[in-house]
Amino acid sequence: MLDLSSTTAKIVFGLTLALIGFFLFFPVYWMITSSLKADAELYKIIPTAFPQEITLHHYWTALTQGRLPTYLLNSLITSGSSAALNSLLALYAAYSFAKYDYFGRQPIMLLMLSAQMFPFGLLLISIYPLWTQFGLLDTQIGLILSYIVFALPVATYMLFSYFSQVPDELIDAARADGASDLRIFHTIVIPISIPPIVTVFLYSFMWSWNDLLYSMTLIVSDDKRTIGPGLLLTYLSDSNSDWGGAMAASLVASAPIVVAFMFLQRYFIQGVTAGAVK
């Protein structure tokens, strides 16, 4: 059997990790260095690994001359709203599935989860005429609602799994203390469920932030465009060759997700319920 503490094992593991790391981080590294290179250096036949001269010119151009700030703001509005609405709806749906027994609970849950089995593109075919009918096409509300259609089942299921494990005795204790069902949910269950709620919020936020298909199809006006289609249409056309700008804009577009993760990752590992019940 392989001795995990042996030098050979360490070398094998080290090399494997280095290889995985290289594949994962090289594109990010290339994006960062390219965004910092001057145009002349970018188009050299033999590319340089490190920028010979660091310039913030591409960032300045992306942020001041294009519509990047508008796209960013639009994405922030649609992703933020859909994530917030999605988390809110999922909270109540998941709690009712997890802690109440009522007629039709199981079929409703299965129906909701089955929505996940359809390919995203397929549902767009039915959403498009529907949104046209309701006048939701080319509106941010329409886009937000379409994101909820997709993220809600998974978000509900994620929270359902968590709420199912919230001890019934905790809820019974609050009932015996005189709290109503809603009060128990708001003052006991939600405060101890911050980590999964944050996870669900981030999941929904990332889902809509990274979306291309829906925002590209359901939004037509340039001033309502989100970051994905915005970047694509600005930088990836046949005539465009501003790779430095594309890299800088992509980095700026990724920043909110990275920052959000940096601030909220502690919730993923925090065991808030420790000490609740033995």
Binding site: L170, A173, I188, P191, I192, A276
Partner: peptide
């Protein structure tokens, strides 16, 4: 007018 002490304590962790 009843108070109950639970087996698992059931204290509110937060």
């Amino acid at each position: 007018g009843i108070a109950m002490v639970f087996q698992s304590y059931a204290l509110y962790p937060h």
